[in-house]
Amino acid sequence: MNLSAGFKPLAMILPGLALAVLIIGYPIYDLGYASLHEVSRFGQFRGLNGLTNFRDVFQDPLFYGSLIRTVIWTFAVVGGTLALSLPIAMMLNEEFYGRGLARVIIMLPWSISLTMTAVVWRWALNGRAGLFNATLMDLGILKEPIEWLGEAHQAFTVEILIGILVSIPFTTTIFLGGLSALPQDSYEAAAVDGATRWDQFRHITLPLMKPFINIAVVLNVIYVFNSLPIIWVMTEGGPANGTDILVTYLYKLAFRFGQLGKASAISLIMFGVLMVFTIIYVLLVMRGEAGADAEE
């Protein structure tokens, strides 16, 4: 259908494009502007101050603590998610009794807002009144109740585990999409050639799934890097900033402490990091499409 479409397609994408540019483009410009100015806590600009905001950020020990925890948080959650999701997807891709039910259960955390999940876990992990301790004690695993969120290291670990739990559905979905597109006949050919299940996994599944694994890594890195609700609801970055990551620290600076210039600078730094991952993602997607085009 190669009509002389003229300006019609442009007219069709334009309204949406305009909204996206306004809502996503303008704030980036504004953050850039604010990061180079001294800003009062009420948002008034007090004049250009060059890179002072950025220097403030880089001299702030809390920034470095948050940065390190962001790296740990991102790596641990993404790594854990991938390690669990691929085997789960492979199981869900096979026929077995109750597969439909298993799929529904495993996808369930995706449907629920992270805020609500975090609220429920915060209650469940309550030291004396929480059912988590009670259940572990009933099973004889624990003797004494533990205040899971009372100490930073432990709280952070718990938050990472919950982060993994809520990231599994999305990742599994990507993998299921990929697995359903794998050619069945290569498995049959491999079986005829005498490959074991493990050989098939290593030499067929893994290489063919590589594009999906790449995409899952990048998307998860982006989502997890940006995820606020779990940590915010469960510990608000505390105790004593011990579970702060960049997003929670940024949010506090901006909306609790009114350090708008510094917060803008952190936003921009994060935006830069995000851009790097986004470009990787776009390149991965485009490469996949170029491959698909070549096959046609």
């Binding site: 494009l17 996206a20 809502i23 996503i24 303008y26 704030p27 980036i28 410009y29 504004d30 953050l31 604010a34 948002g43 998307l219 982006i222 989502y223 940006n226 606020l228 997003v247 940024l250 949010y251 901006a254 909306f255 708008l260 917060a263 803008s264 936003s267 994060m270 935006f271 995000l274 991952f277 986004t278 993602y281 776009v282 997607v285």
Partner: peptide
């Protein structure tokens, strides 16, 4: 552009959005 906006998360822009 679409792929890029898909990756943009509100949290990074939240301060700018609020000011807007």
């Amino acid at each position: 552009f679409l792929l890029m906006t898909q990756m943009m998360s509100p949290i990074v822009l939240v301060l700018g959005l609020f000011r807007m």
